[in-house]
Simulated scan of single mutants.
Amino acid sequence: MAQLGYFQISPRPATPPEDSVTLRHLAIVMPAYNEAEGIRGFVDEIRASVASLADVVSFHVADDRSTDGTAAVFDDVDDVTVEVQPLNRGHGPTALAAYRAGLAADPDALVHVDGDGQFHGSDFPRLIGALISEDADVVHGVRDGRTDPWYRKVLTGAVGVLIASAAGRRVPDVNTPLRAYRPEALRTLIDAVPTDASVPHVHFSLAEARAGFVVRYLRVASIPRRGVSTTGTMWGRGAGVALPPKRLRLFVRSALGEAWQLSLRPSAPLRRIRRPEPVAR
């Protein structure tokens, strides 16, 4: 097992035995925008992978005003709740809405993943197993083999350098969308971040490092977005896209300003976050 500071990056072990994790309630939360082509198959894959790990598994999809019928995909599925957002606000606010919907269900553990399905369902038991066995507050899925355009990889790396400087140590894959949380740890983060934050996972990663959260990092495979259309992603699908879209450039400028105001400046409100007392289990 490789070491990174006093955190750990775990290799890809076999799926933990089915009787090694037993939760009362596991919530899976997803922000989604125009993912009708692939999201149901992704949810089915996750469900099959985690069914033995919890008495109840629930899915909570925050739909960012999709135009392709994403919200109707689960009309006949009992364990999936879809909340259509009042406005199209982008990934960050929609992810936060998904988190809040999952927390409202009072789970023992919560996993966030984007609705574009860029992960294997078989990695979810490993993520949840690490959360329980390591008694962690959060486990990040560190993406191997990303197929995103080059400029998204460069952006992630640059943000990682910025966060490492602010936190005093490196945080691998600082903006990963695959995360497993203990509810009490997540509530502390959610309560501190405005509902319209555009890069909540960047804020979370920095606050977790500064506040002494027990964080573990698990290598997971990153796969191409499910679905053949390009309408479900804001920043471009494949590695062959030559230049960052103007929309992304404007987003980065705005996100940097947000990071400064909320997390980086000396009096930033997220500097006041402290790790909550662990709940007896």
Rank of each mutant, 00 (worst) to 15 (best):
P172G: 11
G145R: 06
R219M: 13
G157V: 01
A209K: 01
A136M: 07
G129D: 02
I190Y: 13
M234K: 06
L131D: 06
F119E: 04
I132E: 10
R169T: 05
N175I: 15
T156P: 01
V142F: 06
R170S: 12
S198A: 14
I190V: 15
V171R: 04
R187I: 14
H203R: 08
R170L: 09
D116N: 08
H120A: 07
V202R: 08
L131C: 05
V199M: 14
R143D: 00
P183N: 09
V220K: 00
L162D: 12
A136I: 07
H203S: 13
H140G: 05
A104F: 02
R216L: 01
R152V: 11
V171T: 04
E134L: 06
R143T: 00
V174C: 02
P172I: 12
V154Q: 08
G236L: 00
I132P: 05
T195D: 15
E134H: 05
A192P: 10
I163H: 08
T231S: 15
N175M: 13
W150H: 12
G141M: 01
L178W: 02
H201I: 08
P200R: 08
H120W: 08
V215I: 08
I190C: 13
D148Y: 08
I223C: 00
D114S: 07
S205Q: 00
A209Y: 01
D191C: 09
V220S: 00
A221Y: 10
D135M: 02
T188I: 04
I128W: 10
G115S: 05
G157Y: 02
H112W: 05
V171A: 03
M234P: 07
A104C: 03
P194S: 04
D135E: 09
L186P: 11
A109R: 13
I128P: 13
G145W: 04
H112M: 15
M234A: 15
R179I: 12
I163F: 03
L127R: 03
A207H: 10
V154A: 14
